[in-house]
Amino acid sequence: MPILLRCPVCFEALSPEQKSAVCKNNHQFDRARQGYLNLLPSNKKRSKNPGDDQMMVEARTRFLNHGYYQPVIDALIDKIQSFSPEAPQSILDAGCGEGYYTSAIQEKLEDSEVCGFDIAKPAILAASKRNKAIEWLVASVSDLPLMDEQFDVIISIFSRSDWPEFSRVLKPGGHIVILTPGQNHLMALRLAIYDEVRPYPEDKRLQDLPEHLYLLESQTIDHMMMLENSQAIMDLLAMTPHYWHINARQKEQLERLDQLECELEMRLSVVQKRYTETQ
């Protein structure tokens, strides 16, 4: 079943029409030449160019394409497959970035319908070049341009979660897979930058779930990476919030490194939507 889109202006269903999508109130959204749809109206943006910029997208693409985060892909796919070992699923990647994880999931679960969205237009442009079989959208997590209760799985990787919106588009019994940093995630990178490093705090979002969502399970993904050149180290930096906080001296000392052994530690948590009493 194709992904069902919702007009971001009037919330009516969007229907495909040649190279665009249009609702019954004649709000029309044209597909970009690369195939994606921009469903983030300018009046709903908090800034002119929200999200990652072109430099950060290119750094992320270079780094991830080297396979440093392959254990994360493997864990994600194993978990998604465990929800429905036989039947295909409809999957939404919320805050998909340049589509590395989304594409890998679609290629492995090729019978599933997959949609990825991000608020950053440069990221979706890169994603649409990576994989043509996915419905790519420029959209905001707080106002999803998607019809209700159509997804079996939502994944959210180091992205903001909007529980009401996730619940709205998720089928009853569906799963939300969330990846957050473990306490020691990228510790070696942080030690190379800062004089004092604190462990990442525990994610509070999972402690404040609405009543119809509950934490089903959690596991840790732990892997040691060897970054073998300065480019990989600086690309990893550009993927993190630390990029915006380091000063010139800290950046310079990081650039002098020609290799770095760095721990990848992520927490994979699964949240499930409760069935209603009538179901």
Results as ranks from 00 to 15, higher is better:
1 M>L: 12
2 P>S: 15
3 I>K: 12
5 L>A: 04
5 L>E: 07
6 R>Y: 11
6 R>A: 15
7 C>T: 01
8 P>D: 08
8 P>G: 07
10 C>G: 10
11 F>R: 14
20 S>F: 09
21 A>P: 00
23 C>F: 05
27 H>D: 04
27 H>S: 07
28 Q>Y: 02
29 F>L: 03
31 R>F: 11
39 L>E: 05
40 L>M: 02
41 P>I: 09
41 P>M: 10
42 S>I: 10
43 N>D: 12
44 K>N: 07
45 K>T: 10
48 K>M: 13
49 N>E: 13
50 P>L: 03
59 A>R: 05
61 T>D: 13
63 F>I: 12
64 L>N: 14
67 G>M: 08
69 Y>D: 05
69 Y>G: 03
71 P>C: 03
72 V>L: 04
78 D>W: 11
79 K>S: 00
82 S>W: 04
83 F>T: 04
88 P>N: 13
88 P>V: 13
90 S>W: 12
91 I>R: 05
95 G>R: 03
95 G>V: 07
97 G>Y: 06
99 G>N: 04
101 Y>T: 05
102 T>G: 03
102 T>Q: 00
105 I>M: 14
115 C>I: 12
115 C>Q: 13
116 G>F: 00
118 D>A: 00
120 A>H: 05
124 I>V: 09
125 L>W: 13
125 L>Q: 15
130 R>G: 06
132 K>Q: 15
138 V>R: 08
139 A>N: 04
145 P>Q: 08
149 E>Y: 01
152 D>E: 11
153 V>W: 08
155 I>D: 07
156 S>L: 11
157 I>T: 05
158 F>M: 10
160 R>G: 04
162 D>Q: 07
162 D>G: 01
167 S>W: 12
169 V>S: 06
170 L>G: 10
176 I>V: 09
180 T>K: 05
186 L>H: 01
187 M>D: 04
188 A>P: 09
194 Y>M: 10
201 P>L: 07
201 P>R: 10
202 E>R: 01
203 D>I: 06
204 K>R: 14
205 R>F: 05
205 R>Y: 01
206 L>V: 05
209 L>K: 04
211 E>K: 15
211 E>S: 14
212 H>E: 15
215 L>W: 00
219 Q>A: 12
223 H>M: 10
224 M>A: 13
228 E>Y: 01
230 S>G: 15
233 I>W: 06
236 L>R: 05
237 L>H: 08
238 A>D: 11
240 T>F: 05
244 W>V: 03
245 H>E: 12
248 A>P: 00
252 E>M: 15
253 Q>K: 09
255 E>A: 15
256 R>T: 12
256 R>W: 08
256 R>K: 14
257 L>I: 09
262 C>G: 09
262 C>L: 11
262 C>E: 00
265 E>I: 01
266 M>R: 00
267 R>W: 02
268 L>Q: 07
269 S>R: 08
272 Q>S: 08
272 Q>W: 09
275 Y>L: 15
276 T>N: 13
278 T>E: 15
279 Q>C: 11
